[in-house]
């Protein structure tokens, strides 16, 4: 662990690393990224730019679009938050505890990735509708409807976001050095202290990444949401649906405008979280 004793400042730029392959791997990664992601997205922005900045702003601030954007972002944030908490718990029990059926539980976590979103939406709507397994119980107990209300959107977003947190936290947790915990324990720290002061800080970057990814994924989600949302304007309408609506009217400019607004907002939130993460990495080090 010699590298870690170096102050992080010295690591910034001029010092050449002893490891080879920087140019090759970065070059390849950048070209691939440009080809598959950046150029196609640039075309989107370019098409939207036909409207001009004021035109974009006008589209984004239409009451209908603003309501949909708010719904999308607010519910995505809530769903990602819930997933950050429970995802951490699940990652923890999967890596630290042995219990019957653990491999199966482990496999189940990835299901939301593997299931086509439309299938998830259909299945969730069936379960959480007023006549579904869960929906009927909840409605009998609380009188609240889940499917076809914003709560339904929330359920769908929780479903699709779950693996992100678990799968980013799990490998880090698995790789975490037990010796550090042992050291902390030997120095007289209680278990709670060790978890809060030693383990959790090491997990913060991964949790943040998982949260950010779950959030960002939820904002753009379409397939699973439309089946359970109700899609009522100003109540349960999500922003991606408005893109589809614009496309149905052959209004590419309008569609790309909403897409660009969504893209910029989620790009910025991702960037902020990645910056916080690299800051915390520098602050807390690699444990």
């Amino acid at each position: 662990m010699t590298a870690l004793t170096l102050p992080s400042r010295e690591w910034l730029r001029p010092k050449p690393s002893a490891l080879p392959g920087f140019g090759l791997t970065l070059g390849f990664a950048l070209s691939y990224l440009a080809l598959i992601v950046l150029i196609p997205l640039a075309v989107l922005v370019w098409r939207a730019s036909g409207l001009g900045l004021s035109g974009l702003w006008a589209v984004a601030t239409t009451p209908r679009v603003r309501a949909a954007l708010e719904t999308s972002f607010y519910l995505s944030f809530a769903a990602a938050l819930v997933n950050a908490v429970f995802g951490l718990v699940i990652a923890w029990i999967l890596t630290r505890y042995r219990f019957p059926g653990r491999p199966l539980v482990d496999a189940m976590v990835d299901l939301p990735f593997a299931l086509p979103t439309a299938v998830a939406g259909i299945a969730l709507a069936a379960i959480y509708a007023s006549n579904g397994w869960v929906g009927s119980i909840v409605e009998a107990l609380t009188g609240l409807k889940i499917a076809f209300t914003p709560r339904g959107i929330f359920v769908a977003l929780v479903f699709i976001g779950l693996p992100f947190v678990v799968r980013t936290v799990q490998p880090v947790l698995m790789d975490l050095d037990r010796e550090v915990e042992e050291a902390s324990a030997t120095l007289g720290a209680g278990r709670l202290q060790t978890v809060l002061r030693v383990i959790l800080p090491a997990l913060v970057p991964a949790i943040l990444t998982g949260f950010a990814l779950a959030f960002a994924r939820a904002v753009g989600e379409y397939g699973s949401v439309i089946f359970i949302a109700g899609n009522m304007p100003f109540i349960s309408e999500i922003a991606p649906l408005l893109i589809i609506v614009q496309l149905e009217e052959f209004n590419y400019a309008g569609a790309t405008a909403i897409a660009t607004v969504m893209l910029s907002i989620s790009f910025l939130s991702l960037l902020v979280i990645n910056l916080i993460q690299s800051w915390s990495r520098r602050r807390f080090g690699d444990v």
């Binding site: 075309v43 989107l44 904002v219 969504m262 893209l263």
Partner: peptide, 18 residues
């Protein structure tokens, strides 16, 4: 990370635009 946050609808649309 960007492809995660791009709505699937848009991910298809960009290739149609191209």
């Amino acid at each position: 990370d960007l492809p995660f946050s791009v709505s699937p609808v848009v991910s298809g649309l960009i290739f149609v635009l191209l």
